[in-house]
Simulated assay, not measured.
Amino acid sequence: MAKAKHTKTNAIRILEQQKIHFDVIEYDTGDGQVDGVSVAEKIDQPVARVFKTLVAKASAQKLFVFVIPVAEELDLKAAAKIVGEKKIDMLAVKDLLGFTGYVRGGCSPIGMKKLYPTVIDESAHQHGSIIVSAGKIGMQIHVQLDDLKNITKAQLAPITTTHL
Rank of each mutant, 00 (worst) to 15 (best):
A4K: 14
A4H: 14
K5M: 13
H6D: 12
K8N: 13
K8M: 15
T9F: 05
T9H: 07
T9G: 08
I12E: 15
R13Q: 14
I14P: 05
L15W: 01
Q17T: 13
Q18D: 11
I20Y: 07
F22E: 08
D23R: 12
I25N: 11
I25H: 12
E26W: 13
E26A: 15
D28Y: 10
D28A: 12
G30D: 11
V34E: 12
V34M: 14
D35C: 06
D35M: 08
D35Q: 06
G36V: 03
I43G: 10
D44T: 07
V50K: 00
F51V: 00
K52G: 03
K52C: 02
T53S: 04
L54E: 05
A58P: 05
S59F: 00
Q61E: 14
K62S: 11
F64K: 06
F66K: 08
I68V: 14
P69K: 06
L74V: 07
L76E: 08
A78N: 12
A78K: 15
A79C: 04
G84R: 09
K86W: 05
K87A: 12
D89W: 09
D89Q: 14
D89A: 14
M90R: 12
L91G: 06
A92H: 12
A92Q: 13
V93F: 05
G106L: 01
P109Q: 01
I110Y: 04
M112D: 05
K113V: 03
P117V: 00
T118K: 02
E122G: 02
H125M: 15
H125W: 11
H127D: 04
I130S: 08
V132M: 09
V132I: 14
V132H: 07
S133I: 00
S133V: 00
A134C: 11
A134Q: 10
G135P: 00
I137G: 08
I141F: 02
Q144V: 09
L145C: 07
D146P: 03
L148C: 01
K149P: 01
I151W: 02
A154N: 09
A154V: 09
T160M: 07
L164A: 13
